[in-house]
Design a protein around this nucleic acid. Structure first.
Lengths: 217, 217
DNA sequence: CCGCATCCGATGTGATACTG
DNA sequence: CAGTATCACATCGGATGCGG
């Protein structure tokens, strides 16, 4: 096993299992569903391939990740997916994400970005209190890429990659602008300056902004 | 600055600021209040002194920690304390702690332990739902060391180091047994076998066990 | 003692090249 | 596509030193 803190403490043990460099970011990728090796490498942007391989092995040993082959006829494809224990890291990751979003610099464009990270950002920003009684969908359309949607059914929110056909609000912009908007690094006016386009009911837009408050410093 | 993931993502940014080895454990120590350099070194058990010094410098640069001198006549004493931003890591740390407690091995005694870690364990286990309407205190008395107490005032819980004079339940045992009990690595019978002594009302003990459920696998 | 700084060997990381 | 192999370099862990 790798280096251990070896302390009788829940936090130290959590960090022994999932605290090494890159590990929580791999969990971030897998929280969006099973992924292949190259998808992971692409979604993590700068991870060295040997480090990714090593982490995936450790995460299997630690019971966070399972390695699977798809059913025939696609049996040559290997995917990694979170175990139940790995999934349970989701809440801690959301808390860390909220904390990080508060001080995320507004230099959208300076830092690379992937559209599917919006899923995490939406989940982290979602305020169940503000969503009470609401049933509607919002779609963030990433120019030249996929959409990410938040669907609310009687206050219950769920986020997924893909369009929302009946969205009450649809915001189209480049990835950095959308991300900056959700994180609160940009306000509405700045987003419009950067070419964001908004369709839908202004009242629904107001609700959306309350349901997705930016956890800002 | 240190190595950065350089991704436009709240989680990646959080890990840039607080994800390095030892950093979150230092925050754990400081969540219990300001500490001197040697207290930190002692509470962290195995941290190399140069790493602690380096981390404290980075954490100051990142705005997590402030370095202060006490008022005269004790002006020679240097203490480190969390900034407001550092304090806000508390929720994420509690989530990680809960996750880690679920699989913390029951080998109490095999891993070193410090009494004040019980503060974190109690906070992580506290269930506000179960505490509704309750107003009483519980004390964990660590043999040969300090006590740690949970005081509940009309459902509002607060944990601190020190005795609770009017505790409804008082459990005395060695540190490892108390920690194992709170983490759920030991059950009541096992704790008694290891020499734990319980004073107080059995009904209050039952309430305490509901208010402090072990987040176990 | 307290609060670090310095030195050094072991280990981990990052970049690139290569293979079944 | 899914990794393994290699190597320069950064960081970690452990010991020791040292001024206030």
């Amino acid at each position: 096993m790798a280096r251990s803190y070896n302390q009788f403490c829940g936090l130290a043990h959590a960090l022994d299992l999932a605290g090494e460099r890159w590990t929580l970011l791999i969990v971030r990728e897998l929280l969006a569903g099973p992924r292949r090796y190259t998808d992971l490498k692409d979604g993590l942007l700068n991870i060295p391939t040997n480090v990714l391989a090593a982490r995936l092995r450790e995460m299997q040993d630690n019971g966070l990740v399972a390695r699977r082959r798809l059913q025939p006829p696609a049996a040559s494809v290997v995917v990694y997916q979170l175990t139940a224990e790995g999934e349970r890291l989701g809440e801690a990751i959301l808390e860390l994400t909220r904390w990080g979003m508060r001080t995320l610099p507004a230099d959208a464009g300076a830092r690379p970005f992937r559209a599917h990270w919006l899923v995490l950002a939406l989940r982290a920003s979602f305020d169940p209190q503000a969503a009470r009684g609401v049933s509607e969908s919002y779609e963030l359309r990433v120019e030249g890429d996929q959409s990410v949607s938040l669907e609310i059914d009687d206050g219950e929110g769920s986020v997924h990659v893909g369009p929302a056909p009946d969205a009450a609000v649809r915001i189209s912009a480049d990835a950095e602008t959308l991300a900056g908007l959700i994180a609160g690094a940009l306000d509405g006016a700045q987003a419009l300056e950067r070419g964001a386009r908004v369709e839908g009911d202004p009242a629904a837009l107001a609700r959306m902004r309350e349901i997705l408050p930016a956890p800002r410093a």
